[in-house]
Each structure stands twice: as C-alpha cells, then as structure tokens.
Design a binder for these strands. Sequence first.
RNA 1: GCGCCUGUAGCUCAGGGGAUAGAGCAACGGAUUCCUAAUCCGUGGGCCGCAGGUUCAAUUCCUGCCAGGCGUACCA
Length: 565
Amino acid sequence: MFKFKQEIINNLVTLVDMTEEEIDQHLSIPPDPKMGDYAFPCFILSKSWKRSPHEISEYMADKIQPGEWIKEAHNAGPYLNFFCNREKLTGETLKDICEHREFFGYLEEGEGENVVIDFSAPNIAKPFGIGHLRSTVIGNSLYRLYKALGYNCIGINHLGDWGTQFGKLIAAYEHWGDEEKLKDDPISYLYELYVQFHKEASENESLEEEGRSCFKNLEWGEEEAVCMWAKFKDLSLKEFRRVYDRLDIKFDAEQGESFYNEMLSPTIKMLEENNIVKESDGALVVDLESYNMPPCLLRKKDGATLYATRDLCAAIYRFEEYNFHKLIYVVGAGQSLHFQQLFKVLELMGFPWADRCVHVPFGLIKFKEGKMSTRMGNLIFLEDVIDKAVSLAREIIEEKNPGLESKEEVAEMVGIGAVIFGDLSNDRVKDIDFDWDKVLDFSGETSPYIQYAHARICSILRKEDAHISPQADFSLLSREEEQSLISYLARFSENIKRAADNYKPSILARYLIDLTREFNYFYHRCPVLTAEKELKEARLLLIDGVRQVLVNGLYLLGIKAPQEM
RNA sequence: GCGCCUGUAGCUCAGGGGAUAGAGCAACGGAUUCCUAAUCCGUGGGCCGCAGGUUCAAUUCCUGCCAGGCGUACCA
C-alpha cells in the first residue's frame, strides 16, 4: 500500500502546488471501499485555483495517468478517488507475507538507533498489583513495536527498591516482625506489615518519623538496615520473575532506584556547578517558577534524596550507556508533572538530548469502591486476575473442545491474552474501571476473538496439509470479501508505525479486531476447502496471510496465538 | 486557587480536519446435514457535555463555561 500511495503522491505533486508531505497528509481513505482506495479532497485547491472542488477533481481525474499501481482515478463530487491495481496489490501483498513470515510488516527506519524503554517498575516488598499491569503490558508492547520498526530496544525495569517506604517497612519489621511468617509467604507478609504500619501511623504520628529515620539509616549504609533491605528485595524479585515469566516479558536491565545511589552526590554537584539549584526551607530545589511549575525537590532538609534526584541520575546514566534516540517512560499520568520537571531540569543542565525523553502516561485503573491503594490494603493482585482468567479459559475449553491436547497451555495463552488485550485495546490515557465481568468476558472485542479466528485458519490449513505455494492465480480473489481482507493485510505496516509513533498499542489492537471481523465475514461466505481447485489455492494463500498477520500483530501486543482452542 | 487529562448509543469504548458518526456488551429476532457457534446475520437505539470562534468543511483544532479524574515541595 505504501508503493501505491507513493505513486499517487508522485502523480499529484506534478499537478498541485504542494509538497509530498502535504499531499500525504491530505490523502484519506474513503468511507466505502467501492469509492476507491485513497481519496484526495479537492476543497483545498478551490481558493487558489478559483474553481469549484468539483471542477478541480474532474479536471484532475483526466490528468492522472494509470501506472504500475494506479489502476484508475475518477472524481466523485469534490473528491478525486484513486483505485489501486487490485491484482498487483493482492499478489505483492501475499508474496510479501510468504517471503517475510514472522517479520512481515516490519520496517527498517530505526536501524542502528537505540530506544530505551522504562516500564513496569513495581515496588519491591509490595505485591504485584493490577495497577502495575498497565505499565507492564504497554511498555512490553512498545518494546516490540519499536523493535518492529528496526530500533534496537533496551527494556529497563526501574524497580522501586529504594525510598522512604523501605524505612517504613524496616520500622514495621522491627516492631512486629516475625521471621517465620516472613519465610512462609514473604510478599504477603511484607504487604501485611506495610498496611499495618499505615494503620498504626494514622494514630501515632511518631511512627512516620521513625520510618523516615530508618530510611536515612539505610541511605547511610547502616549494616542492619541494609541487610534487611537486601533480604526484602531478594524475596520480592523471585515472585516478580514468576509473573514476568507467565506474561512472557523480559528486561534487558533491572537497575532499580538503588542502582543510582553512588551517582547522587556527583549529580547534585553537577547541578550546583550549573548554578541551577538553591536552598529553600532547608531543602535543595531547582526553581522552575519561570516555567510555571512548582520547584523540583532534590534533597530533603534531613539530607535524604528524593526520586527526582534518582531519576536525573538514571536519565544521565542511560544516555551515557546507550546514547539513546529516545528514552520512553511508561508511567502513570499521575506523574506527568514529575516528568515535566525532570525533563526541564535536564534541559537546564544543558543536555541536548533532554528533548528525546518522552513520558508515555496512562490512566488509572479505578474501582467502584474508590481508588486502589497499597496503603489501604485493598489491592487486587495481578496473579489472581490472571488465575481467574486462565481458569475460566480452562472451563470453556472443557465445554467446547474437551478433546484438545495441550489444554493447560492453551488456557494460559487465552486467559492471559484476554487480560493483556483488555488493557491494551483502549486508549491508554483513559482511566479504566476495573470490572471482573469485563476481564472475564471472552466474546466480542477481545483477544480470544482474534485467537479463535487464528485457530480456525490453522485448522483449515491443517486439514489441507498442503504447503502454501505463493504461485496462485491472484485474479481469482476478486470478491468483495477477499479484496477487503487484502486491503487490511496491506495496511498492517502502517498500523504498526502509527501505533509506535503515537505510543499507542491500542491502535494495533483495534486494527486486529477489525481484521478479524473482516475475516469472519469472509469465512462465513467463502468456503475454502470446498472451493474449486484454483480458487482454493488462492484462498488458502489468502487465509494463510491473515493467519500470519494475526500472529504477528498479537505478538506485538505481547499475546500468543494457539493453533487450536 | 492553579496545572494536566477526560466527556460520543442504556453500559464499555472506536473514530488520522473531510463523504451517511461506528463497534462490542446488554435486549430482542434469526443462522449449525456445511472449513471448531469463543462465530455469523438482522432489529432498535445519538442536541458527539454546553456556548462561541477558526475553516470551503469541526465529534476532530482554538477559547470560555459545566461535570468528573489526577496532580499541585520534603512519598513514589
């Protein structure tokens, strides 16, 4: 489709006083495929040409030369509609898929460039809650999307393994800690302690102070505190890895906040040398008033640092280490101000790469009961959500396809896919109302819907047991249902790029739903196996193409596609 | 108070300045001698929060208002 579009642009650029980019921007897809594959609206020329859009489109339609890709162009009112050489598009697209297989749709624009993606970042000593799902799955998908654009990606899990919370936890453990309980079920127990701490702290203010002082001990390297911290961290990591394994997510680096401890002083020194910090109420801050922002707080009056300081260190370290083309932070929208401040301070420090840092925000997961908070103890564990989804998938398999072999594997793919897709399919900036019924709904716009279509295609291909030859007669795929599918397949690449450019996996998720719907439409009208030989071969090639795009697309979202379900 | 984000069908949401605003869920009615019915087809359902502005064209961009969410210096 890129080539077709380019040919249109090449044609138009000689007729119209516009740049290629401008034309590209205005080219749109008509609402009905019957109207054409691309449309150029002629309103824009009306003023300068001093003629009606209708006249212009009529005039231009005559001037457009059919070419390799452009079959014809004619005017429809004020629009100039272009029709693609369908046979060529069909052949090129299906051959392209056969040739590139799991890499079909990938681009090369990012070759040689590094993209660093900071995502997931759960807090040590706290359970992996449903709230961490968003950063984790969005980040993982962006990682795969940017890789598909040819970038070399570095996924970093910026673990929350430092901060006042640990002081609180250490204080709590000193008060009520029980070695046995800790060994038994570490995360749950630490979580209990954390909740207990906040409950008691609301009645006893000195407890907060105690937590802060414990953290100060930790920062100063007091042995007992460091030892306890290391233990908590170790136990937590083990549990997190189990969740990441199930989600099939890997990181290239797991430098948590504590990693930057030695860099804190040099960084603060650098800020002081740059003369952009000042003392305020005993704390060290960067004044951002002239940028209409509250000051960025770097060091508390008790001498302990804050996460802004560590984030500064991390950004600088990452640039030195990876010389990134982009540094992407997949972090909740609640921290937008923090990142604005962070990027501004980097700019003030004179780093020319400050504008290569992007915050990719996302909305909260909300509950009917109100905001979820670790402190309140009303957390929903991610693993519980996954378990429920998987066991529902298992039940449905038992009911629909009891003879299925690897039931457990398939249930895992379907259940987890549904959880991931449910999160990725909507625009990330919007808050999500957490609803068990919705998470556990496997019909309609869900990943099981896509996976199911994929499994059916596999089933057909299995029955035929023929290796697909790319030598079919493409002109036989002339039905509306078939051509519509071809258009979708040909636009896969555009959708990968658009999803990556906008940091929105939801764009790709929607595309996959639309493609699947289109496939089902085809499936219910066009028999494959019982079609006449030549047509059957062509249709096999077509559905194999759909299969490949579904697999590739789901992969880019971080979802697996079972061959049977 | 100030800043950021969000308001589209009963519910959850798509919608790239352009042609008749679309899905899913729920409701109702249909389809299985036929490649797996986690599917498909049909029906009903809309001052696109409100008011201005920019434009040949605004659900889309800008301003104001209303409603909700989040943030707003020693948490992350």
